[in-house]
């Protein structure tokens, strides 16, 4: 009886890191949103505000999920923003200048992601080069390539099929509102949001229930013991990078679908937002701890706070940067404290 209790207690304290961090994130998101509704009212009372946040951050959700997986397995990938820009530009050029097809552009996006994943994965996993340096070079390369493909930012205008796809809206029944003219405006989300949410669910299931998913945690938690458990550490690392870059490619396409243009300055700093979202969502930098649902809420928290800051009239551009950094700082400190406690608990 007591033994069982002990086991249960152990299990709880072991699980608590991931879950505790997740709970904090979700709670903070809801508190922030409710606070915004109470104190700022206006737009925040309408569901469409939330959907707008989703619409403009669908790409970030996807890339942040990839980032979480790499971080869980103990790596990092700062090339995702560059990949998103490269995908946007390549697809824009293909669709607008060469009148390409939607399928073709989608293939280009995924191919760029896969190629990035394979190269970075091999360099990190099999040649044992630091992931930061590899993806740093990857980011440089992607940004540079984007300008080499086309210097000038431009909108896709000559491809009707794409414009139709870009304009496609999925109405959410029962969530609309009446505007001041008294006309009912239905609430809507863009295709990208559906893609992002489906990917979140798939990745959540993969991480939780598949062997590969669990080996990400094992490798990130402790390489030695993962090796002893018979996990192929190199292959796991390779796959984490492959998945992350492929998601960046898909995220790039979703981003492109949202903005409809190609530009070398697209998705500037997205890698940092993705890392920040993951951390806020409870992914530990040291690896081994993290949750995709947390990442989703990390993205939402991040963009809600941006919205609050700017609709509060504090739109001097620097406030956004400073708030995000402050949030990041707080969460990092929480993590650091949690880690310390955990180490102490392990010792005693």
């Amino acid at each position: 009886m007591s033994k069982k209790k002990l086991l249960k207690g152990n299990l709880f304290s072991r699980m608590s890191d991931t879950n505790l961090l997740l709970i904090i994130t979700v709670a903070i998101f809801f508190l922030m949103y409710i606070g915004a509704i109470i104190f700022q009212g206006g737009g925040f009372t309408k569901p469409q505000m939330l959907f707008n946040i989703l619409n403009s951050n669908a790409a970030l959700i996807i890339t942040a999920c990839g980032m979480s997986i790499v971080m869980i397995s103990g790596g990092i990938d700062i090339s995702v923003g560059g990949v998103v820009a490269l995908v946007s530009m390549s697809c824009a050029v293909y669709l607008d200048f060469h009148n390409g097809s939607i399928i073709g552009s989608l293939l280009i996006a995924i191919a760029i992601g896969l190629a990035y994943g394979i190269v970075q994965g091999v360099l990190v996993a099999y040649l044992d080069i630091q992931p930061f340096i590899v993806s740093l070079a990857g980011m440089f390369f992607a940004r540079g390539m984007t300008t080499i493909i086309n210097t000038k930012p431009f909108n896709v205008e000559n491809n009707q099929a794409f414009l139709d796809l870009k304009g496609t809206r999925i109405t959410v029944p029962g969530m609309g509102s009446y505007n001041r003219k008294g006309i009912y405006v239905p609430a809507y989300i863009e295709i990208g949001v559906v893609v992002a949410l489906v990917l979140v669910i798939i990745l959540f299931l993969v991480l939780r229930y598949t062997k590969l998913g669990r080996s990400f945690y094992a490798v990130g938690g402790n390489k030695q013991s993962a090796l002893m458990l018979g996990i192929n550490v190199k292959r796991t690392k390779f796959f984490s990078h492959l998945i992350c870059s492929t998601l960046a490619g898909i995220g790039g396409y979703v981003y492109f679908l949202h903005v409809g243009s190609g530009s070398a300055s697209h998705a500037m700093g997205m890698e940092m937002n993705a890392i920040a979202s993951s951390i806020i969502g409870g992914t530990m930098l040291s690896g081994g701890v993290g949750n995709i649902i947390g990442t989703l809420f990390g993205v939402l928290s991040l963009s809600t706070i941006q919205n609050i800051v700017s609709s509060a009239g504090l739109d001097q551009a620097w406030w956004t940067g400073i708030t995000i950094a402050a949030m990041l700082c707080i969460f990092l400190l929480i993590q650091s404290v949690v880690m310390k406690q955990r180490k102490r608990a392990l010792k005693s």
């Binding site: 903070i28 922030m32 104190f39 929480i334």
Partner: peptide, 26 residues
Amino acid sequence: TRAVVAAVLLLLVTLVSCRSSVVEES
């Protein structure tokens, strides 16, 4: 751990509400 986290959480909430009340004023 939980106590520390709770404290930080409280701090955050106050921060957020502070900001919002400023906003309301403006």
